[in-house]
Design a protein around this nucleic acid. Structure first.
Lengths: 232, 232
DNA sequence: AATTAAATTTAGACAAATCTAAAAATAGAT
DNA sequence: ATCTATTTTTAGATTTGTCTAAATTTAATT
């Protein structure tokens, strides 16, 4: 009975709004027993701090967050598990949209924001299978497993790479539409091999060699690209 | 401007509840300029008549239904178009669930009820393409086209077939889980060839030949199966 | 330690979608 | 044609999620 109740409570009785709050809190670091402030959540969600306070109380009553007045919230184990299941759904849907429906990686976020709230365990398991159990979404972000395990990534930012070192582009830190479009325009894609040729002290820009061609990229770009030494 | 506004209004500003009302009214025949009563809608949606009245006013203000107090509602052209787009989405998602995710046809309804409310024109167009532009859903119901054309079906109920006539099973009238499970258990599937061998006057049951085997089926079953003379 | 600035919470209001209970309109039967 | 039973609507309340404005707490500075 307890098992079924947990399932019902978390998977069926969660509102869309509650799920969005949990996801945001997780992305702000609330899964690491760090307290996230009301203001930070409000800013991220483009809502008012007073609304966040209301929701913090509700989520606290449901045992999904620890909430201390004037201090902020952090996720409980139950809250982390729920947040991960939403993130899992979001990222699996993103893979589906790109792999099966030919969406570009800058078009998937908005639709995945809707699809992540669909309630059906079977649906997401079968989708996972259809996609051949992908480990990463189109932006290189890891997809949590069914039992809430998070694939930690072993990678660094391109801006932190040493001169003459080589790596493979595996993810983006900023997955905003403008940035993704910029990468497309400049033929920078995940999977590309990158070698750091030189760094410019003046503006921290990099001269890199990518797939044969040499190019210069700004620090702002380099600090939003994840690179890994070895292939996955 | 007018075109864009219509799009925004109907595709983005429609609430889930409004969409469900429109769909229900359509299924009750409200698209044929027939007035559907408050009570009928309330019963179908398992809600109270007073709630239906409230929504009737709201939909009327939005120009989606014609509403006359104490008389009932019927769909306007705009309402029909919107209802058809929701039904289109529902049925395409059902095909996806069965064809791509190996759902059984008795499992798809509940999930499709959620998926039909996802807002993205590109998503549904691409899904249609992925599925190779199906004309019928897993229960044999026709899928409206993108521009709201409804594929009318040319078929009759098995119970209305003449003795010795032959046809192909193309759809179910009752798509409830128990009925679909019954059909599965008795190996009755869409696409099967059926020949009516004999009819029993006493209880209206039929003796049929299906895919070689002979069997007897009740009137209740026969009056919930659609059959067509020629292949599609 | 007192004061001020910033963050946070409370209190009260609102819109959406629902409900209950009472009032009004319709339709059916005598 | 009137009465009655049913249907439908209205009025007012409830829940969820949000907001504004005022009050409170915390943190920073002197």
């Amino acid at each position: 009975m307890s098992n079924k109740n947990v399932f019902l409570k978390k998977d069926f009785l969660m509102t869309r709004s509650e799920e969005n709050y949990l996801k945001t809190i997780f992305h702000l670091g609330g899964g690491d027993s760090k307290s996230i402030t009301t203001n930070a959540i409000a800013e991220q969600m483009e809502t008012k701090p007073s609304s966040v306070t209301d929701m913090a109380k509700k989520l606290s009553e449901k045992g999904l967050v620890d909430y201390v007045r004037y201090q902020g919230v952090s996720l409980t184990d139950s809250g982390i598990k729920t947040a991960l299941s939403i993130i899992r759904k979001h990222r699996l849907w993103e893979v589906f949209l790109v792999e099966k429906l030919d969406f570009n990686w800058d078009e998937v976020h908005e639709v995945a924001e809707q699809l992540e709230h669909i309630k059906s365990e079977k649906l997401i398991d079968k989708l996972d299978e259809l996609l051949d159990f992908p480990k990463y979404d189109p932006h290189g972000d890891p997809i949590p497993t069914k039992d809430g395990k998070f694939q930690e990534r072993d990678e660094k930012l391109l801006s932190e790479m040493a001169i003459n070192s080589t790596g493979i582009c595996v993810g983006v830190k900023d997955s905003s539409v403008p940035f993704l479009k910029f990468l497309d325009k400049n033929k920078i894609a995940l999977g590309n091999t990158i070698k750091v040729m030189d760094k410019e002290d003046f503006d921290n820009s990099l001269r890199i060699q990518m797939e044969g061609k040499e190019m210069r990229i700004s620090y702002q770009i380099a600090s939003n690209l994840y690179v890994k030494k070895n292939d996955r």
